[in-house]
Amino acid sequence: MNAIDHPLVTAYLDAVARETSELPAERRAELLADLREHVEVSGAETDIQVRRVLDGLGDPRAVAGAALAEESATAPAVRPGRTRLTVVLLAVAGLLVLFNSFVGAAAMLVGLALLWGSPQWSTRQKAIATVACAAVPFVVVLAVLSLYGSRIGPMELLVLAGLSLAVPVAGATVLSRAARR
């Protein structure tokens, strides 16, 4: 049996993964790959050899604690005011586009610049928030332009306003929750 397939190694790596759930996904994957490589290179074959290798690595909590401490020491400080500003701008930008397209577009661009410049959200979260905050106003503007000659009634305007507010607010809520973690 290859050492990496040993049940003790699997349990050890699972424990490290659980303990490092607060790490960014890329950093956690890198740590686990390094640990796997160390076990593979050791050439351990027996239970005793595998236990020695794992003991040499240290307790999973200690390994995770060191990785978390290293991450917090190298991560730039997150400013709560900037986080709130980013979330608020992205939440209201869609609605602002309906009332004043220049102000709405400016709010959205500033919000997206703050979002993508922030280290606290993953690339996936940033992409989802970008789509949620920019897609609906974009579609609304296209719809209004295509219906330029036709009359838009109060009910259609209300639906457009509701969508322009609800979808970006949902995206901003996801960002806000992710920032609290």
Rank of each mutant, 00 (worst) to 15 (best):
Q49I: 02
A64G: 08
A105V: 14
V139G: 01
V9D: 04
V53N: 01
E70Q: 13
L158Q: 03
S122Y: 05
A105F: 09
P154V: 07
S122K: 08
R181V: 14
A129G: 05
V9H: 03
V131Y: 07
R181Q: 13
L114N: 06
R180I: 03
A44G: 01
A132Q: 01
T83F: 07
K126Y: 05
C133W: 00
A106T: 15
L175A: 05
V50G: 00
S164W: 01
A170Y: 11
A107W: 02
H6K: 05
L115E: 03
V50D: 01
K126C: 01
A29G: 15
A132N: 01
R36L: 11
V174G: 07
A127V: 09
A25C: 13
A127P: 02
P24A: 11
L8P: 03
V141D: 05
L96K: 05
Q120N: 12
Q125N: 05
V174R: 09
A62L: 13
A44L: 02
L68I: 15
M1L: 12
V159F: 04
V97C: 04
A11K: 14
D47P: 01
V87M: 10
E26M: 13
V167P: 00
A69E: 15
V50K: 03
A106H: 11
L89Y: 01
R124M: 08
G149L: 07
P119R: 04
L13W: 06
V63T: 09
R177D: 08
L57S: 11
P80A: 05
D59G: 03
L142F: 11
V97Y: 05
K126P: 00
R27S: 13
T173L: 07
W116S: 07
L23F: 12
Q49W: 06
V141A: 10
